[in-house]
Design a binder for these strands. Structure first.
Lengths: 177, 177
DNA sequence: ACCTGAACACCGTTCAAGT
DNA sequence: ACCTGAACACCGTTCAAGT
């Protein structure tokens, strides 16, 4: 099996899911693929670009999209999509950092994030307002995931009531006045 | 001048402000203090604890507090405090990561973050709701700072209209119904 | 075109030994 | 009590040289 960009990214995803970002090093990745480190740089420009592609693999799945027609109001679709994103990212260690790298490079298109903006626009916000609303919601999703993952990591008893959903509802209520 | 915990943390703050988190390594810090790396570990448990103390130094300043009596409504005090936090963190490279480390370890008390919660409570929210509202606002502040700093880093033209304040107003409006 | 081998310039943390 | 010297086990990236 020849080394391709796809197998590199896929293996990176697996390492991330199983061991977290701290273990996702170029050297570890090379070892997993039975290859020398330098070989990776033929298929991927650098680690940042690799992480962006990992983020795309994580988010660009049909499971993370929502059918606007299934909801009576756009606000409900927004809530649903946000919850799906939150729940999908929660079990993947350090996923917020990875997503942030991808959005920062912004060359990679993350479908659910774009849909979030679309839904905000179709709920009556202007293009610019929708972009800012998307920012607010994404900040809350990623921040809440990171916070929760830190609690687990430090063996602190996680409060049963999460706070994510409450904050999400208030944010959406504030956005769609 | 003997090496103390305080000088170590202060030097760390300086490196962070001038060169960012990537340059704030234990080895670089030791070099700046004309000392061997191992010496640092006598004054600080590890790098994580150091970063938590750096965060405390950055945030626990009287400039980042607000006098509730100066405002007609608690909502205005919340807005003002949030803006001050945002503006204070913006010029410090990678400040969101540092603050996140500190809040994750939660042993360090960050005064402005606590005041945010107090203000939310005094605006009519329950203790639990105030905690969740604090989470929403902090997520937005740190997320927006990180986003802005990434734009600068990548030499993308930053949009003049920031989006932070718009999102902040909507969030506060949603929280204080 | 694709990969190896080896180097460059770094990391955080530990710990015997010195003063 | 406080610090040095040196090691351990790692990093990301580059690049001549091989096939």
């Amino acid at each position: 099996m020849a080394l391709t960009q796809n197998t590199v990214v896929d293996t990176a995803v697996t390492i991330l899911q199983q061991f977290g970002l701290a273990d996702l090093s170029m050297r570890r990745l090379a070892k997993e693929l039975d290859v020398q480190v330098g070989a990776l740089y033929w298929h991927v420009k650098n680690k940042q670009e690799l992480l962006a592609q990992v983020a795309a693999k994580l988010l660009n799945t049909p499971q993370l999209s929502v059918n606007a027609e299934d909801f009576s109001a756009p606000a409900d679709a927004i809530l649903q999509l946000s919850r799906r994103l939150y729940l999908a990212l929660l079990p993947i260690q350090d996923s917020p950092e990875v997503i942030e790298v991808a959005t920062a490079m912004q060359v990679t298109e993350l479908a659910p994030v774009l849909q979030l903006r679309d839904l905000l626009e179709s709920s009556g916000l202007s293009t610019e307002q929708a972009r800012h609303g998307q920012q607010l919601l994404l900040n809350h999703i990623l921040g809440s995931v990171a916070f929760r993952q830190n609690l687990v990591q430090l063996d602190v008893d996680a409060p049963l009531a999460d706070g994510f959903d409450w904050g999400l509802q208030r944010a959406v209520a504030g956005l769609i006045s």
